[in-house]
Design a protein around this nucleic acid. Structure first.
Length: 120
DNA sequence: GCCCTGACTGCTA
DNA sequence: TTAGCAGCCAGGG
């Protein structure tokens, strides 16, 4: 069974190492859909209960290097706090420096492996 | 199966 | 990493 797009997003996001950040567009591109950034955001928006603790959603920000969130329960403040706790720094304007904290992503082969060895 | 929405992005001015 | 706008994808109703 092929994992759903949401499921792929979650697995890939789990690969982002502590202290690094990736953009929605980057995640989408790694999944083979460079234009599906919004869908990635929606996938994270759909996280519920235990999934929230299981997926490092806070490591995903917009392409500008800024936090872009609108949920009431999981606010931008929380996201920023979680990231700072991991060592990610924000400048005075609230931007993260991609050069310092950006995630390089994975090799295509590694990504394929994420779908293969797991049963759905 | 159609229509709307959304934690986005790249292009233009 | 300026602001504004249209395009893109997957789910949910």
């Amino acid at each position: 069974m092929e994992p759903s797009f949401f499921e792929r997003v979650y697995r890939l996001v789990r690969q982002i190492p502590r202290g690094r950040v990736a953009s929605y567009g980057q995640i989408a591109a790694l999944l083979g859909h460079p234009q599906a950034a919004r869908t990635v955001g929606w996938a994270l928006n759909a996280l519920r209960g235990s999934e929230v603790a299981d997926v490092p959603w806070q490591r995903v920000i917009n392409s500008a290097g800024r936090i872009s969130i609108s949920r009431a329960d999981l606010g931008a403040d929380l996201q920023r706090a979680l990231l700072e706790e991991e060592g990610v720094a924000f400048d005075a304007r609230g931007y993260v420096d991609w050069k310092r904290f950006g995630w390089a992503g994975l090799e295509w082969r590694e990504i394929e492996g994420l779908w293969g060895d797991v049963k759905i």
